[in-house]
């Protein structure tokens, strides 16, 4: 199974990198862009067919390593099997 974990900063947490990127976009004349926030994406392959179990495993992985839940939120998507 393929899964994608997205980790983003919680609302209100200062994101200097996002601000710098936003400044660069403006300087490149991308009009109307604002509130840029940078996050992380993890593409993960996981053995087995049990989607709920995979979700639980990845949830624990997020809690224990992939995200720092003091300042970050995470979302887990399991790809639809073909």
């Amino acid at each position: 199974m393929k899964a994608r974990v997205t980790v983003t900063l919680k609302p209100g947490v200062l994101d200097p990198q996002g601000k710098a990127i936003e400044g660069a976009l403006r300087s490149m004349s991308f009009e109307g862009v604002h509130a840029v926030r940078q996050g992380k994406v993890f593409d993960i392959e996981i053995d087995g067919e049990d989607r709920e179990r995979a979700r639980a495993t990845l949830g624990e992985a997020c809690e224990r390593l992939l995200a720092n839940t003091i300042v970050e939120d995470y979302a887990i998507e399991i790809a639809k099997t073909p």
Binding site: V13, P16, N68
Partner: peptide, 16 residues
């Protein structure tokens, strides 16, 4: 902090 032995977290310097 990451190990949970101290409270809080260290983020990117606010002035970048």
């Amino acid at each position: 902090c990451e190990a949970g032995l101290l409270p809080g977290v260290l983020m990117r310097n606010a002035n970048r």
